[in-house]
């Protein structure tokens, strides 16, 4: 049971962070289908940092440096989306998809090139971080506490505050609802959208490193992040683009995800004898059903997906 709780919380943290990232981007009016790619890049930045830090580095430095680089790489990568979709008015679905493909390919190429340059016989696309990963963990009884759990909660509260209680957040949301009106009162829509996408890069990149440190100590970058970015997208929609609902949705979907990992340890579920794929499928099925019933009066930002053109009225 402890294991289930632990997995649920860590997966929920990942989903919550990434979904909040999507939430910022969409509230500013840019659909971010590239979340999966941003996660891969964040994971890459963090993993490489952990791998390169010398063995004796103190725990606090490891935690800070890893987090920082994951965030930085995530933000840098999200610029690809911002440039294309905000400045060049490209198709957001197309660019998002391209970013997902690009991230996995680029990360694999990078890691393999790095591995071979260190050891010519090593052509794998994995990075190991058994030792540095311990810096993130603290055991409370059997429960493996991870500093990222706290970060997720703090960022959740911060996101809620920024979106609803600050001038910046309200302006950001205005750009996603009615950019022309926002522009007419002097808000720079392009800047606001850039801010939204960069924040999604921040949270997505962080989510990426949290995901690959959850449960495993080695990551094979050929796998990308196994659809977690898309699951986060589902969380965001299920949470109706509101931070509090997103947190609850993340907990629910995190639970399903955790169940697929540990259900064999729970007698009641084991007796049901369902294959683990069922638990993997459930979050997506639930999202589709929820979408079917809520999309008629969806809370989605009204102007999302439409490139803003100053000249158009």
């Amino acid at each position: 049971m402890v294991l289930l709780l632990q997995y649920t919380i860590i997966f929920a943290s990942v989903l919550c962070l990434v979904a909040l990232g999507g939430c910022f981007s969409e509230h500013s009016g840019v659909i971010n289908l590239g979340l999966e790619g941003i996660m891969v890049m964040g994971a890459l930045g963090g993993a490489v940092t952990m791998f390169l830090l010398p063995a004796g580095t103190s725990k606090i430095v490891i935690v800070l440096a890893t987090t920082l680089f994951a965030i930085l790489v995530g933000m840098l990568y999200s610029c690809l989306l911002a440039v294309a979709c905000i400045n060049f008015k490209a198709d957001q679905t197309l660019i998002g998809t391209a970013m997902n493909l690009l991230a996995t390919a680029a990360a694999t190429v990078f890691v393999r090139a790095m591995n071979t340059s260190i050891n010519p016989d090593n052509v794998s696309s994995s990075i190991q971080y058994i030792q540095p990963k311990k810096a993130f963990l603290k055991y409370i009884g059997n429960f493996e506490f991870n500093w990222f759990m706290i970060m997720a909660v703090v960022l959740l509260i911060a996101s809620w505050f920024v979106l609803y209680k600050t001038k910046f957040g309200l302006r950001l949301m205005a750009c996603g609802e009615n950019p022309q009106a926002a522009d007419s009162v002097g808000i720079n829509v392009y800047k606001m959208r850039w801010a939204g996408v960069l924040i999604s890069g921040f949270l997505g990149g962080l989510g990426g490193i949290v995901y690959i440190t959850a449960g495993v100590s080695e990551w094979k970058f050929e796998m990308g992040v196994a659809g977690f970015g898309f699951l986060a997208l589902a969380v965001m929609i299920f949470g109706q683009w509101k931070p509090t609902n997103i947190a609850l949705a993340a907990l629910l979907f995190g639970l399903f995800r955790a169940l697929s990992n540990v259900y064999t340890g729970i007698p009641f579920l084991k007796a049901l004898n369902l294959p683990s794929t069922v638990y993997n499928m459930l979050p997506y099925i639930i999202s589709i059903i929820v979408l079917a019933f809520t999309s008629k009066n969806s809370r989605a930002p009204k102007a999302e997906g439409i490139p803003y053109d100053k000249g158009m009225r």
Partner: peptide, 9 residues
């Protein structure tokens, strides 16, 4: 994937 990305432009 770079080609797809560029197709956006």
């Amino acid at each position: 994937s770079i080609i797809i990305y560029l197709c956006g432009f």
